[in-house]
Amino acid sequence: MTERAWRNWYLIPYGIWLVLFVVAPIVFLVYESFLDLDGHWTVANYENVLTPIYLKMMAYSFWYAFLITLVSLLIGYPTAYWLTKTRHKQLWLLLLILPMWVNLLLKVYAFLGLLGTYGLANALLQTLGIGARQLLFTDFSFVFVSVYIFIPFMVLPIFNALEELPPSLVDAARDLGASAWTTFRRVVFPLTLGGVKAGCQAVFIPSLSLFMITRLVAGNRVITLGTAIEQHFLVTQNWGMGATIAVVLMIAMAVIVGLTGSGRKEGSR
């Protein structure tokens, strides 16, 4: 057999995997989204998604996902830039990744204690003379905790992009008289845009369907599409509606990826 034919054989395990765990679930999900509570065919679920309550929920989901991504980027880019300049790069990177080894639920529970009325954060605010205020169950705490959880996904792709940027380009720009700011704006940032896109996608897409943090940290004061999906599948047992929201969310994500372009190619190559 030729080399090429062998290569096709290697694809079989992955092909089976793809069909069983990627294609089949999506087909089931789409199928389920056209069923009503009694298992009859219907498009009512899709009509329902277009009612004000779900549109509002969708708007909130996108708004909070946008906020989380923006804050992550504003903190993440300088962090990644600084990381490339430090001496003990591997150590700092490890410290950044370390929290990812701790169970997510545990981290979120820790914030319940930290942000509580008698928690550490409020104790600190009081010592500073600002006075205690409600931190838990607010938009602020929701965005804060989400950023904390997602920020490594923003920093790592940007860090990789910056690492691969040849230092000679920066030197050349400076030699040719560009200021530090111009160098950053015209050389460094455009060349690391791929990393930024990859990071934004890695943060924005999972933020859209967050659900656990909305209940634990935001006390259901923030309702996202992820919460609605969980409710429909587990509590209401209205799988049709849950599947419909999931399908809409998937389409929305595909559109976002399509619009921002696949960041990888430009970024890391």
């Binding site: 509580g116 009325t117 008698y118 409600q134 838990l136 935001a218």
Partner: peptide
Amino acid sequence: VKAIVGDEIKLLLANEE
């Protein structure tokens, strides 16, 4: 209403949240 929560309600009430 301050929050609508799950099992954590025990912890939150006991801590006088």
